[in-house]
Amino acid sequence: MLSKILIAFCAFTVVLSASFSRPNVDIISSRADISPDGSFQWSYQSADGTSQEQSGRPDVLGQIVQGNAEWYDPQGVRHNIVYVADANGYQAASADIPVGPPIPAAILKSLQWNARHPEEQ
């Protein structure tokens, strides 16, 4: 009985790993540079159209990093994201990032009223 379970588990593992395997993709270009002052730059581009680049430099409040990434999904649709990370946090911009609905007028009006009438301590 144990041997049948072991054989079934092995067959399941082979089928599962085959479904997750992807072909290797060649890297067309790659570069990286790290400076003694703490600044850096790196980038790569692969044969399937995926590319990414990032640069950073030290700042009084920490590191400032900016970059972008581009890739194609299985349907061939191009995706791109541009980002900055600094003292204001991580800020990304992309057509793929969903935008929430607008604030309802009644809530917006109450927020404005609250801003004009702060509670006294």
Rank of each mutant, 00 (worst) to 15 (best):
Q52G: 09
S29F: 14
F40C: 03
C10P: 10
N80M: 15
M1E: 15
D26A: 15
A69R: 09
H117L: 00
D37P: 01
A115G: 05
G67D: 03
A106Q: 09
V25K: 11
Q112I: 04
R57C: 11
V82K: 14
D37A: 01
P58N: 05
Y44K: 00
W71E: 11
L61V: 14
S30P: 06
R57V: 09
I103P: 00
L108W: 07
S94Y: 01
V84F: 07
G67L: 02
I34N: 08
N88M: 12
D86C: 02
A69F: 10
G38Q: 02
S35C: 04
S55K: 15
V84Q: 14
G76H: 08
A8K: 10
A87G: 08
G100I: 01
G62W: 06
S55G: 13
Y72T: 05
G38T: 00
S94C: 00
S43P: 04
F20Y: 11
T13E: 08
G38E: 01
T50N: 05
P104H: 01
D73L: 12
Q121W: 02
A69G: 14
A85Q: 09
A18Q: 12
Q112D: 08
A69M: 10
I81R: 03
P118C: 02
L6F: 15
P102D: 01
I27L: 12
S21Y: 13
W71I: 02
H117E: 00
I34C: 04
F20L: 11
S3C: 11
W113S: 09
S35L: 05
K109H: 12
D33P: 03
A105V: 07
P101I: 01
F9I: 15
P36V: 00
V15T: 08
G100R: 00
C10R: 15
S110Y: 12
I28G: 11
G56I: 03
P104Q: 01
F9S: 15
R116Q: 06
E120C: 04
L16Q: 11
S30W: 12
I34F: 12
S43V: 02
E119S: 05
S43H: 03
W71F: 11
D73E: 12
V99Y: 00
E53F: 06
G67P: 05
V77H: 09
Q91F: 02
P101D: 00
Y90N: 10
V60K: 15
R22T: 12
N88E: 12
G49K: 03
P118V: 02
I7C: 12
D73K: 07
A87N: 05
S43F: 01
K4L: 13
V84N: 09
S46N: 06
S46C: 05
D73G: 11
A87C: 05
S21F: 10
Q75R: 15
G89I: 04
H79Q: 07
S55D: 09
S35I: 03
E119T: 03
W42N: 05
Q63S: 13
T50H: 07
S110I: 14
A8T: 14
I28A: 15
S51D: 05
N80P: 12
S17T: 14
S30R: 11
S46F: 02
S39V: 01
S29R: 14
G100M: 01
A106P: 06
A87Y: 08
E119K: 06
G62V: 06
S51I: 13
Q91E: 06
